[in-house]
Nucleic acid binder design. Structure first.
Lengths: 222, 222
DNA sequence: CGAAACAAACCGACTGGTCGGTCGGATGCC
DNA sequence: GGCATCCGACCGACCAGTCGGTTTGTTTCG
């Protein structure tokens, strides 16, 4: 590890102008790649496109970066770094734990709202695939989020939980579930998926305002 | 819409044996595609692979399905249908809203735990891209989930929230956030992302056991 | 100071490989 | 004979990465 860039690296020994221009080009390419990846996704972005957007040639791009993946990696890392630093700064300014949580969430929201492109790059995993795939995936998420929202509506109607934004809650629940399952699939984090069921159940119910007493009563299940 | 399959469609008018064999082949292909997609992802699955896995040829596959995408679509839909039906059945068996929620969650968990392949197909959007992309994405999720867990640990240490599985909560929070942002990006659902901040904030804090009084106090922010 | 020598930076045609989809025919059930 | 079914060689498009060659800024030396 540590062999990121190529020739341009140690060129700054002398001749500042040259090195500076090189660094500028590098940034130019990174910038172009950022926008192109965010707009069209990783797979659908061709190196020629990046080159064109950076107003250089494919050869020029390959002079500064070894592979397409290397560009993506660097972009991911630096973008995530920037966001994490921003959040850390915001959190450090607060002392109360809940205020900290607030600050973190608010920072993330504000940053994404201001930099849509950043959000696309960091969060839209699915953009890695093509359009078709994406549409199907979207429909699926939509469907299950709505399904959950429907159940929540019933619960609200029956007075089991206080009124709340069921649409949003459906989306959030689905997202949480999705992430937990994905983690299990990719990292094998809990060896048995069912292990996370009780704590996740409690978490979700609590988030909808179900009284603690009610949550504890798991019943005879399992 | 409605031009899914090709010749095989209306073949069942007469001659049962022939039609049956055709239907069998269709299933065979679907089955092979299911496994291959789940294992290697959409993009990395070649039609030749599907054909080989189904013990037929590419031409054979193309006789039954118009495009690769059509196969994927049908697979997604039918799999989601099956899962949704299962959940619906489980929910219908309960009357109490919270028990319903329980049943739904438990059904999903049990189904995935039993059919890892199904989970892969339905939930691993990122699998649509290649390995490289995926690794990077994974690291990112891991990183932010841990970051959240870290903050939660502090909050627990200070007694601001009751002890809980901070690791899982971090993952769930990240998933919820991710999904909300993704929804905004893809569907443009809330025109302004910030609109969802207050309700999401309340949802997340509540899920961690922050007392209702504390949640209501939004402070002078915004 | 200017010209030759050098190397960093850049260019774009080309290669090798992949893969979705096509098509002309073969095969067997009715 | 005729139609559904199936086969697999082939086509065309796409694209990451390479490479020989050109340009351009810098250094060296007469």
């Amino acid at each position: 590890m540590g062999d990121e860039k190529r020739g341009g690296a140690q060129a700054e020994k002398r001749g500042g102008a040259r090195a500076e221009k090189s660094r500028t080009r590098r940034e130019q390419i990174l910038d172009a790649a950022f926008n192109t990846f965010a707009r069209r996704g990783y797979r659908d972005t061709a190196m020629d496109e990046i080159a064109a957007a950076a107003e250089t040639s494919k050869g020029g791009v390959y002079f500064h970066f070894a592979t397409k993946e290397a560009i993506f990696r660097e972009l991911m890392r630096s973008t995530a770094d920037r966001l994490a630093a921003k959040v850390d700064r915001a959190v450090a300014a607060e002392t109360d734990p809940i205020a900290k949580a607030d600050a973190a969430l608010r920072t993330v929201f504000a940053t994404f709202a201001g930099h849509r492109t950043m959000a696309r790059l960091l969060f839209l995993d699915a953009l890695g695939a093509g359009r078709a795939f994406n549409d199907e995936t979207n429909a699926l998420h939509e469907r299950f989020a709505r399904m959950i929202a429907g159940y929540l509506d019933e619960a609200v109607a029956e007075g089991a939980i206080p009124p709340l934004d069921t649409r949003l809650t459906g989306v959030a629940w689905f997202g949480a579930l999705n992430e937990v399952v994905a983690r299990w699939l990719m990292a094998g984090e809990p060896a048995r998926l069912e292990e996370t069921y009780p704590p996740l159940r409690a978490l979700l119910l609590r988030s909808a305002g179900v009284p603690e007493a009610r949550i504890a009563a798991t019943g005879p299940a399992r």
